[in-house]
């Protein structure tokens, strides 16, 4: 929920003067700043002028997360997953394999489910992101969240955020017509506890209008 109440993180003291890691980044930044003018001029000459970032430089990024607009500064190598968790403190989205194989990091970008671990944050300029924190309406859980509780769609819970984000998309896409179709279209979300039958039941219940 921190995303909803936080101000723009790039304006906050915490963001500017945080960790040792940030300090190291800023030390490096000094080198980059020295290099900047010539590089930017060159970029303009080469018609790369829309956006260019040097090796140590942060890029300004605007995006909307769960209805809240953010302007943040990110290194080009930061993934959307790490931006959400480390800078916006939305830790509901989980890092599993970090390689696009498990689906724990699934979020919606402009209404479409993606693996946030394989998406560089800078490529999401101007996009609308929905994470697990953005599904509920205040204290009222999303029907899919209710259904996962009702049908025991998890054990350890680590994959659950990704499962629920994927499950919501699965129904929106029209891929929840049968158990086989649900299993096929949920195959990008691995559950090591093996809660699959209950996850399928939860999705079917929501598809059928919440009847369990």
């Amino acid at each position: 929920m921190s995303g909803k109440k936080s101000n723009n993180p790039s304006d906050s003291e915490e963001f500017l003067n945080g960790t040792r890691r940030d300090f190291l980044k800023k030390s490096s930044l000094l080198t980059a700043v020295a290099l900047t003018p010539g590089r930017v001029v060159k970029a303009a000459e080469e018609q790369w002028d829309e956006k260019i970032a040097g090796v140590f430089e942060k890029v300004s990024l605007h995006l909307e997360v769960n209805g809240v607009k953010h302007t943040v500064a990110v290194e080009p190598r930061v993934t959307l997953l790490d931006l959400l968790r480390e800078q916006l403190h939305l830790t509901g989205t989980k890092k599993g394999c970090d390689r696009g194989q498990c689906g724990a990091c699934t979020v919606h970008v402009n209404g479409v489910r993606v693996n946030s671990c394989l998406s560089l944050a800078v490529t999401n300029e101007g996009k609308k992101i929905t994470t697990i924190e953005g599904l509920a309406n205040g204290d009222e859980l999303h029907p899919m969240q209710e259904a996962f509780i009702e049908h025991d769609g998890f054990q350890c819970g680590y994959c659950t955020s990704g499962q629920i984000m994927s499950a919501v998309a699965c129904i929106h896409e029209g891929h929840a017509g049968s158990e086989a179709e649900i299993r096929e279209h949920m195959s990008g979300n691995i559950c090591r506890c093996g809660a699959y039958p209950n996850i399928v039941n939860a999705i079917q219940a929501v598809k059928n209008g919440g009847q369990s």
């Binding site: 018609q47 790369w48 829309e50 260019i52 090796v55 080009p76 800078v122």
Partner: peptide
């Protein structure tokens, strides 16, 4: 992940140009 320079061209010719000059470059 190693650091890298990030370029975002708006036109196809500029993209090709950004690729052919300079360091080890990949399209994303």
């Amino acid at each position: 992940m190693n650091q890298f320079q990030y370029v975002r061209p708006a036109e196809v010719p500029a993209a090709a140009k950004a690729f052919t000059k300079g360091p080890n470059t990949h399209f994303l």
